[in-house]
Design a protein around this nucleic acid. Structure first.
Lengths: 369, 369
DNA sequence: GTGAAAGCGCTAACAA
DNA sequence: TTGTTAGCGCTTTCAC
């Protein structure tokens, strides 16, 4: 019953060649005569051979370096959380000799990105995790990676023509629709809604505009274009015209809800709106930043869409690691579900992440949920 | 820089003993003289030793059998989905020599459970995954496991005094509160709500009653006990008194929402209510069964709380496997987040699970999200 | 009690 | 182009 696994040695024996030759065939490392090849292939076609990856790993005693090309985590808590996930992944993969090297760049400066990207190439990594937030500046980097045969995983922003190993993120358009659905539920005309972008570089980032598009389209479908949707964009914390427009929006008696397009923006908006809350004005934003969960408990924020930066980053590293260590191709589009957090399920999310932070749930062999 | 890892061989060398002795110390397999012990301990305290788990695995060429003691998947789709997750886990862990042996029992028959449990013990497994839905009948089984030092993981129903390796499930009380929150959102008095239990053995299962409790308490808090909540319990598909009560409930003009406490019950309820839907009556149920997602798209079901049976089962196996293979203790309470599925985020969930089913996302080394 | 040595299955260097 | 062999780090058996 407990059929012993079919090993390389068995293949060699069955086909009358040596393990060396079998190995060469299995990995087409060349230097195999046609006749030997044929014999081995024949045996291979008759018996199912599953390589023992554990042994493979131990035998080829090599290690891998993954370069991390993401925005500086000090400039935005979102990236800080993502970084947590990466290091967690590094920890999980430590026995497989995976090492991370980080190359942070400044979120709003293309030049800083280009410098970091150049350094990444210079370091000749075995793989790259990258958030390609600057479209034009990223293309030559991808080109270089292809030439050097360095696999890379896209994070957060998808660039389809990049031919990346995979993309990890969410459907942003749909994310906006979810926000709209939550804001509209049980509401009726006349209605006005606001979309807030806080300190984003909208020029360069389709990210936030995609969300807005989904948001608006859902609202128009639901209220047959009879609801008013205004979009406000704060360019800096001293943006005076924004303040005026926001005050204007908040004072509108028909205002039913406000949607903020980023996680840190959600915190800012909640702070600004704290004193203006009216009963039926809903605030929908992103992510379980500490401040956001507190504002939710205080009743300021009604819904948070969870982007799971930590888990996304974890998966990003894992995709690369699986590819490098096990030659395992990843799913090309890895879209995370759009998880909805409310006051009543908030705890079930927060407690979970606390467990993770305590390292209690750190497995030697990580697990997909 | 690339400091080579500190190996058993190094410890042996540094402390002037053989690798055999070091191994005996590390695993206290006894038969070590005080003086040898001291020397090794000294070296160990000065250098951090991280065993190479990969090598360990290859060296000790052993395999593990995990017994699965869950309800027959043919009797309830929930358990069918759970089974999927288990086999997925088995696949992921195949290189670590983990084998699953299933012992299904009938959901409504204690005796069937007892027979299956006896068979499990007889098979002398290395670990057990169990859904202890019959409280009294399970206790002696736990006792036996302790005596035989067989670790077990609780699934779905928690029994605190069992001293299990871990419990995997959700906070049921809070689950009911989430359902109530969703049903109440934007609603106003006068209001009536229904709780439906379909074909459950309420006698034996705190499971469904916990959900109902959370549901009722939230509603009473929200409407200051001025809303009416009725609980209906169908005992069989031919339960006539249930049909009458349900017709009664549905015809009530103040009915604002109905909550169903199980996944298959949600399907049944949706079928029954299909023709009775009124605009502001919300239907909240459980899980992404095919039928449920279709009823959601059709507008019959408004919210589904995702219990993630597949992922829970996957994690259950992984907890055991990690414990057996890596001696890694699990988090004792592994409560899954209470995920809310709506029409707008449904696709982001369904697409994901399709990827998984296609096996595209099957990693050699599974990953926690 | 202890150490030496033979695996585990695969890789990779080297000699033929 | 091939076969042989010495690892990878740990476990486990078996003499001493």
């Amino acid at each position: 019953m407990e059929k012993k696994n079919f090993r390389i040695k068995d293949i060699a024996h069955a086909s009358g060649v040596s393990v060396g030759t079998v190995d060469r065939v299995l990995h087409n490392r060349g230097k195999v005569s046609a006749v030997a090849l044929k014999k081995v292939m024949e045996v291979l076609s008759k018996n199912e051979y599953k390589p023992n990856l554990i042994a493979r790993l131990l035998g080829s005693n090599r290690s891998y370096r993954i370069a991390i090309l993401l925005p500086d985590p000090d400039q935005d808590p979102y990236w800080g959380i993502a970084r947590l996930g990466m290091f967690q992944a590094e920890n999980e993969w430590q026995h497989y000799n995976i090492k991370l090297v980080t190359f942070p760049f400044e979120m709003l400066h293309k030049h800083s990105f280009e410098k970091a990207a150049a350094k990444v190439l210079e370091s000749r990594p075995d793989g790259v995790l990258i958030a390609p937030i600057f479209y034009h500046e990223t293309l030559p980097f991808f080109e270089a990676c292809h030439q050097k045969k360095i696999p890379f995983v896209l994070f957060n922003t998808n660039i389809k023509e990049s031919k990346a190993l995979c993309f990890i993120g969410q459907d942003l358009y749909q994310s906006g629709r979810v926000a709209a659905e939550l804001i509209c539920m049980g509401q009726s005309l006349p209605a006005k809604f606001g979309v807030l972008h806080v300190d984003e570089d909208l020029e360069d980032s389709v990210h936030f505009l995609e969300k807005e598009k989904g948001f608006k389209e859902y609202i128009n479908e639901t209220f047959e274009s009879k609801a008013d949707v205004v979009s406000l964009n704060r360019t800096s914390s001293s943006d005076f015209s924004f303040k005026k427009k926001l005050a204007n929006l908040v004072s509108d008696p028909h205002l039913k809800g406000v949607f903020v397009s980023s996680s840190h923006g959600t915190t800012t908006a909640a702070t600004l709106l704290k004193n203006h809350r009216k009963n039926n004005v809903r605030l929908v934003g992103y992510d379980l930043l500490k401040e956001n969960t507190e504002y939710m408990k205080d009743g300021i924020i009604d819904f948070l869409i969870h982007q799971k930066p930590q888990q996304q980053a974890f998966l990003g590293i894992s995709c690369l690691a699986n590819y490098l260590v096990f030659k395992k191709e990843a799913v090309h589009m890895n879209l995370f579900p759009l998880e909805i957090v409310t006051r009543q399920n908030l705890d079930s999310y927060v407690k979970l992440s606390e467990q993770k932070e305590n390292g209690q749930n750190v497995t030697y062999k990580p697990v997909i949920i």
